[in-house]
Write a protein that binds this DNA or RNA. Structure first.
Lengths: 151, 151
DNA sequence: CATATTAGTTAGCATAGCTAACTATATTTG
DNA sequence: CAAATATAGTTAGCTATGCTAACTAATATG
C-alpha cells in the first residue's frame, strides 16, 4: 500500500511552480505565432469544441466577460475568428474560428511540439508515459472542479 | 515494453492547456495575499534560495531585467523585501525577503494548499502519487533545460 | 406594457511582459 | 592613468490580460 498522502502541500506547491515555469518557456515559442497566450487558448477552445458565445468562452476560460470581450476583439482584428449574431437572440454572438485561425492554432501547436519534443526527448519512455498519465489525471481533476467549484 | 512515444504532440498540448487552466484557478486564491503571481513567484525564490541580485532573480524567473525591476519595486513598496547595495560592487543590489515577506509567502502557500487539497482529495492515493512523480519529472526537466536552453 | 434580467461593451485601473535608450559603476586597454 | 568598453539597473513607452463599475441593447416576466 502506498502512503495515503505523500505531502499534499509539497505536491501542490511544486505543481504550481512547475506550471509557472513551464508556461514561461512555452510562451516564448508561442510568441512566434504573433498572438498572446489568452488568445491562443481561447482560439483552441473554438477549434476543438466548436463555436461558442462570448459568455460560454469566458466561462470555459475562467475569465470575466469584459476580459473575453477584448480577447475576442483581438482575434477578430487578426481575422482568426468571425462573429455572427444568433438569429434567435440578438444579444448573443456566435464566435467561430476561421480557416486562418485553425491553421494558426495548428502551426502554434507545431512550434510548441518541436520545442517540447526537443526537451521531452531527454525523458525515458516510462517517464514520458508517467507524465502523460499525470496530465490526464490533472485534466479530469480540472474538469470536475469546474463543475463543483467548492470556492 | 511500453510504446516509445505515446504521442508527444498530444502530451505537450494537454500539458500546456492543463498548466494554463490550473494557474487560472490557483491565481484566484493567491489574490487573497494581495500580490500578483510574478511577485509571489519571485518572493518564493528569495525565501527558498536566499538573497539574490536583480539580474539573478530575472534569470531565475526567466524574465528581462526591466520586468524584474518593476516586480521588485512592488515588493519593496509592500515591504516584503529589502534592498541593500553590494559593498564590492555598487552597481549590484542584494534583494532579500523580509520577515513579513516570508510570512506572506507561507500564508499564500497555506491558502493554495487548502484550495488544492480540497480538490486533490478527490484523487485516489495512487493517482496522487502518480501526480507527485510526474511533477518531480517535470521539475528536473525544467531545471535541466534551463542549463541547456537549446533555443 | 412596464419592469427586471441577461448579454456584451466601454471606461478606467493594476500587473506583467517586452524593447530602446539612459545612468552609474567597473573593467579593460592603449 | 585616461579613455573606451562592458555590465547592472532604471526609465519611458508599448502591448496584453486580468479586474470592477457603469453602461446599452435585447429578451423575459409580471
Amino acid at each position: 500500500m502506498p502512503t495515503p498522502h505523500p505531502d499534499v502541500l509539497a505536491i501542490a506547491d511544486r505543481l504550481h511552480s512547475a506550471a509557472i515555469h513551464l508556461l514561461r518557456r512555452v510562451r516564448k515559442q508561442d510568441i512566434a505565432t504573433g498572438e498572446g497566450p489568452a488568445r491562443l487558448s481561447a482560439l483552441s477552445v473554438l477549434v476543438f469544441a466548436g463555436p461558442k458565445t462570448l459568455g460560454e468562452l469566458a466561462a470555459a476560460e475562467q475569465v470575466k466577460p469584459p476580459t473575453m470581450s477584448r480577447i475576442v476583439a483581438g482575434l477578430v482584428r487578426s481575422r482568426l475568428v468571425t462573429i455572427t449574431s444568433d438569429p434567435h437572440d440578438a444579444r448573443r454572438m456566435r464566435i467561430r474560428a476561421t480557416a486562418k485561425g485553425t491553421r494558426l492554432l495548428h502551426k502554434g501547436r507545431q512550434l510548441r511540439i518541436a520545442y517540447l519534443a526537443a526537451h521531452l526527448g531527454e525523458l525515458a519512455p516510462q517517464q514520458l508515459a508517467a507524465l502523460d498519465g499525470a496530465v490526464e489525471i490533472l485534466q479530469r481533476l480540472l474538469e470536475s472542479w469546474q463543475k463543483f467549484p467548492l470556492s
